[in-house]
Simulated assay, not measured.
Amino acid sequence: MSARVMLITGGFGGLGTRLGALAADAGYKVALVGRSRAQDTGFPALRLEGIDTGRPEEARKAVDLVVEQLGGLDVLVNATGDFTIGSVQDGNVEDWARLYAANVVPAVAASQAAIPALVASGSGRIVNVGAALGGQGAPFVGAASASKSALARMTEAAAAELAESGVTVNIVLPTIIDSPRNRQMMPDADPADWVSYEQVAGAILSLAAPEAGDRTGQAIPIGF
């Protein structure tokens, strides 16, 4: 059987890069896409830089390049996202639109672009990277919570719509990922109980497997 193909949006961030490395080790042909400049991180991958998957035409361009150069598409991982801290009372209103544009719109556009190829795969998988805070609003993270909640609802809707197609759609919900940016934004927090890139990547790879065809519309908590 030929190697499965995985496309990771947000592929040049810490999680995307680590997932790409682990997926390559597991035998996947990996494509990384992102708006920033690609860096060679030591594992084989198709690196598509300067592409904003929040724009439908650019998302379609990325998918077309992956299908053309890697021979198809089996797994889409939507790992783009952003986060901010601010209160409902005094926070920046523009943050709400910005986080929706960062956390929801790229996942919708990339999924729309990828679905035909994923259906053709016969065992297509979409895995969205959400957050535990999307389950319930909390002080000072309202914009992030609302946008991640919207991503979870998008996951459920897409799973139901694609139920007869062979394509599954799931979402992983880490608590706080131990990333350089989170350490910078929360310097007084103790990262000892935060979630590692490896933990998130492991859950994604489990959902991406051909054998995971009976798992769809699920929200997988990580770090509880």
Results as ranks from 00 to 15, higher is better:
133 L>W: 00
1 M>V: 08
164 E>L: 13
91 G>K: 02
15 L>V: 05
181 R>K: 14
180 P>M: 12
68 E>L: 11
202 G>W: 02
186 M>Q: 13
85 I>N: 13
81 G>C: 04
2 S>A: 15
157 A>M: 04
142 G>V: 03
83 F>A: 08
74 D>R: 07
18 R>N: 05
27 G>V: 06
80 T>A: 12
81 G>H: 09
162 L>R: 04
13 G>S: 13
118 L>Y: 13
156 E>C: 04
99 L>V: 00
166 G>M: 14
208 A>W: 12
60 R>P: 05
30 V>F: 03
132 A>D: 03
223 G>F: 12
126 I>P: 15
174 P>K: 06
206 S>Q: 08
9 T>Y: 05
210 P>F: 00
131 A>R: 00
191 P>D: 09
1 M>F: 05
70 L>V: 09
83 F>W: 15
86 G>K: 06
93 V>F: 10
169 V>S: 08
166 G>S: 13
163 A>Q: 07
64 D>R: 09
41 T>W: 12
187 P>E: 02
156 E>H: 06
120 A>M: 01
51 I>W: 09
62 A>K: 06
159 A>D: 12
111 S>L: 06
197 Y>D: 14
84 T>V: 03
211 E>I: 01
163 A>L: 12
19 L>F: 04
11 G>F: 10
222 I>D: 06
55 R>E: 14
86 G>N: 10
63 V>D: 06
197 Y>M: 13
208 A>G: 08
91 G>M: 05
162 L>N: 05
73 L>A: 06
80 T>N: 13
137 G>Q: 00
124 G>V: 08
146 A>D: 07
22 L>H: 00
169 V>Y: 02
50 G>M: 13
29 K>T: 13
